[in-house]
Design a binder for these strands. Sequence first.
DNA 1: TGTTAGTATCCGTATAAGCAGATATAAAGA
DNA 2: TCTTTATATCTGCTTATACGGATACTAACA
Lengths: 119, 119
Amino acid sequence: MSLDALAQTFKALSEPLRLRIVHLLMQRNSLCVCDLMSILDQGQSTISRHLNYLKQAGLVHHWREGTWMHYALVPEALVPLQAGALQQCLQQLPELAADQEALAAYESTPRQCGRTASA
Amino acid sequence: MSLDALAQTFKALSEPLRLRIVHLLMQRNSLCVCDLMSILDQGQSTISRHLNYLKQAGLVHHWREGTWMHYALVPEALVPLQAGALQQCLQQLPELAADQEALAAYESTPRQCGRTASA
DNA sequence: TGTTAGTATCCGTATAAGCAGATATAAAGA
DNA sequence: TCTTTATATCTGCTTATACGGATACTAACA
């Protein structure tokens, strides 16, 4: 998981209608586009677009059954939302190792701006 | 917490640079703008704008100390990121109660689209 | 009070992404 | 094969937000 991918996960959850979709998918193994259109009372292109967005972000996967496309959550995709996991995720990102070092380096030189050595 | 506010929380976390800021704030009680400029090697307006965004979303609070503005995380703001908490948060949103009912109502009428009564 | 440092905000510009309606594609059935 | 249904994608338009540079505000200090 990269920093951008993590950001993308949050972005996927940053839209009210997508949150409602995720909420529904949490309660059923899968739902198809027409289910969501009815339940959420939204147009087909709107539902389809948001599902595609969730798919691009890796939050859902989908498969065809006859004419219907079923969508379901990818449970692992929500790992960053578990207890303390955001910090762990961030710690593990190689991109952020540099930030760690910059933070340490920055604090190793004396600064004036009222910083107290804080936790 | 409203649905829009929850979406806003995720949106605040959906930008790589803001994630890096949050990551640093997780490790220190507070940091000021000039700290973040140095550590992240970014321009002043960029840092300030992102901090303002985080503040609007309720993820950080800030206070003045002399010339310096200090920013710190609001720990409660990250509650939706705890174990199982997203689902709980969603369940508690009044806006989503209607979705619950729509889901139940929708499933109470016979449908054709290959839905098996699923968990 | 004038200067400087730290910070916030404004500006112009570019891109991402929202929506609704229209069109394209794929599978099922007559 | 023609039609219908379910879904995906395109189009035109609008809004949100990213960026960097410029400007404005605030506090400290000479």
